[in-house]
């Protein structure tokens, strides 16, 4: 996936393996990072982090595929995919998360939307049920039901 270095129409920004970027990297298009970034990465579209790349930055993207090392928080509006070589040291927030076997995640993880959380039911108005009746009441009710069942059978 990351071996193809040739630019295409879809890929707008490529940071090659020998390039080190320092500062706030903010673009509107897709980003492929194969080198090192220190600061902030922000894009309105997709981000791909190559297996040999090292990112010391907070990431904000629409969708992201991470195969390298990230030291910082990741906030993705859509899908976040961590491949088997991914190492994350920071918090994650994504709508959908895909974790491959072997990927490393050290940090808090938040998925989905807070609105999806169901409201807590109000138990205070509910009348208390007596689950363990007394022995006298039990014997009386039992005899009444037996009588009723016996009459039905005779009929």
């Amino acid at each position: 996936m990351f071996k193809d270095n040739q630019p295409t129409n879809e890929t707008e920004t490529i940071i090659g393996p020998s390039v080190r970027v320092e500062g706030d990297f903010i673009t509107e298009g897709n980003i492929v990072v194969q080198g090192a970034v220190c600061g902030t990465i922000k894009t309105a579209r997709d981000l791909k982090v190559g297996p040999k790349s090292k990112i010391f930055a907070n990431i904000n993207a629409e969708n992201a595929t991470v195969a390298g090392e990230v030291q910082g928080n990741i906030k993705v509006n859509g899908r976040l995919e961590l491949t088997s070589t991914a190492k994350i040291f920071g918090d994650i927030r994504a709508e959908t998360l895909i974790l491959a076997a072997g990927s490393m995640l050290n940090g808090r993880c938040q998925m989905g939307n807070q609105k999806d959380r169901s409201s807590k039911p109000d138990f205070s108005k509910q009348s208390r049920l007596e689950l363990q009746p007394t022995s006298n009441q039990e014997s009386g009710s039992d005899s009444a039901t037996r009588d009723a069942l016996g009459k039905k059978i005779k009929k």
């Binding site: 630019p7 707008e12 490529i14 940071i15 090659g16 393996p17 020998s18 390039v19 298009g29």
Partner: peptide, 21 residues
């Protein structure tokens, strides 16, 4: 466009390519 050429063993060249706007 940033083009980097690294000389490897046996005369092999590794070319990496970056594109920014």
């Amino acid at each position: 466009f940033i083009k980097d050429v690294k000389q490897k063993f046996w005369g092999k060249k590794e070319i990496s390519f970056s594109r920014l706007t």
